[in-house]
Design a protein around this nucleic acid. Sequence first.
DNA 1: ACATGACTAAACATAG
DNA 2: GCTATGTTTAGTCATG
Length: 690
Amino acid sequence: MMQESGPEAKSNGSAIQNGSSSGNHLLECGSLREGRSNGETPAVDVGAADLAHAQQQQALQVARQLLLQQQQQQQVSGLKSPKRNDKQPALQVPVSVAMMTPQVITPQQMQQILQQQVLSPQQLQVLLQQQQALMLQQQQLQEFYKKQQEQLQLQLLQQHAGKQPKEQQQVATQQLAFQQQLLQMQQLQQQHVLSLQRQGLLTIQPGQPALPLQPLAQGMIPTELQQLWKEVTSGHTAEETTGNNHSSLDLTTTCVSSSAPSKTSLIMNPHASTNGQLSVHTPKRESLSHEEHPHSHPLYGHGVCKWPGCEAVCEDFQSFLKHLNSEHALDDRSTAQCRVQMQVVQQLELQLAKDKERLQAMMTHLHVKSTEPKATPQPLNLVSSVTLSKSASEASPQSLPHTPTTPTAPITPVTQGPSVITTTSMHTVGPIRRRYSDKYNVPISSADIAQNQEFYKNAEVRPPFTYASLIRQAILESPEKQLTLNEIYNWFTRMFAYFRRNAATWKGAIRTNLSLHKCFIRVEDEFGSFWTVDDEEFKRGRHIQRGRPRKYCPDENFDELVAHNPSLIKNMQSSHAYCTPLNAALQASMADNSIPLYTTASMGNPALGNLASAIREELNGAMEHTNSNESGSSPGRSPLQALHPVHVKEEPLDPEEAEGPLSLVTTANHSPDFDHDRDYEDEPVNEDME
DNA sequence: ACATGACTAAACATAG
DNA sequence: GCTATGTTTAGTCATG
């Protein structure tokens, strides 16, 4: 937290110095927080500003009323009161005094003030005239300004932005000129008040803000508003660089001439120019929304004004606009609300920036290209480090010495060209070493490994796949979908640098997995044994159940199956998809009585491989029946061993296996359980019997 | 806390 | 006897 607040405070410090300047957006953004850093809470600002504004309004009203009363009195009873002459100048005084008092000044209070006044009637008369002139001028300006606002608003509503930029520009320029005039009026008023104060007419009460520092009338929020507006505009349109961000606020600021060289840009903010006020929304966005949806407004929806804390019901868009101009005009309250909203936005933006930074750091750390659109950069090696951290860290000290290319510091990925780890590969990655909520495996696509092939070939990073997935991949990648154990080994060492060490460990793991997973089917031929994979079974992800004897357990489907085709007793793999072709091919093969079924062509397809296995197993079974008492009925001892012995795992059926009619895994005459020539057809072993 | 899957290690068996 | 291959089990760890 301290680290996070540090730069922020720093920027605030810079903003203090540059807050009123028009140069640096970032620094200007910090100017909003300047108040906080100075201990000036927004709430305090709001209260003071509201108070001053209310006082100003009251003062103006009181002054007008008093002037009217004065005129009436002069007309009706010019000599009615002996103190009339005293009252005349006194009428001017409350204008200023009322600004300092929260209540409306009554004539009685005025009289008290008059009694306290120290100025001569002549002086008061001069002041009165000055005040009257100023007020008159200001009223005229305000009225004209209001008309300008309405006019511009109507124009903007009727015209789409960009249609008549010149007219808009003219209107905006006129508005700008009147804003300047208003500001000059303010300055004159402030000077007037100052003069009154110097002359002793005004006494600043303790605890009250210094009046000259406060805006005097509506639409008079000079530099502060400008800064706020700059913050908003610069925060959202930083790419617009210089100039534009000052435009809208120039309407109300004294910095127009000095800090807004690009006057044309202000017309691009219809909302600001329409209302002549500050908006918390991005001018660009708002103008776009106005252009695209003339009756849509970010502050208007479902017939309700969405100004923070307002929720006023506006029946139509026009009424909303009127409401917006009347209730949310450019005043202190709106400014304060805008400030709050800006703080909310800034907080969110700050949070977003931090998260972005965090993301960037993560991606940098993981060597992921920052151009990746996805925001979930979890490269494979990360998964490896996460899911295999324990295994890797354990295996490494024991059997795998650490190398510079540890999972946490892969070197190769970025430099390996096309095989850069991508986030997209993560979405299709197969069974990484983590547990899934569902029990089914998701096969690795060839692209998953191929995509990062070069990386794993060179980086001694443990692939984030299970042994089973890799074995399957190795088998499926082979042209004939079959591999000997040694070929599997070679594939591992060829494809993964990680598996070039500690052969005993991972080779043992491979062997264990081959035996353990139901999806791997061992097949023997005259040249030895090799392994195939049943992909459907792989997706099921089932293991040979441990701790239970691997004995065959028939189910109702089995009997039915046997009845239909006794030759399919053994080695019926679980895949439903394979059932029909397998059965047909088997029958055809049997009809042909062609023994050499076990060709590479047939094994090119796992289904055909299973078919061949089934056939050969059946033949083996037939031969075993003829040699039923042969104790060592392992494949090697089978008379047909040289031909096509098959070893297939078997295990008790579990409820899931009963789903498929052919989900029978059988035989393993190599299994010790069958070394005693157990004929499961004659002696079905029930799981419960174990 | 418990169940489960993945992994490791080890023991054992078998064949060459 | 050695090695390769294959099976099985126990234990650990991570995860849900």
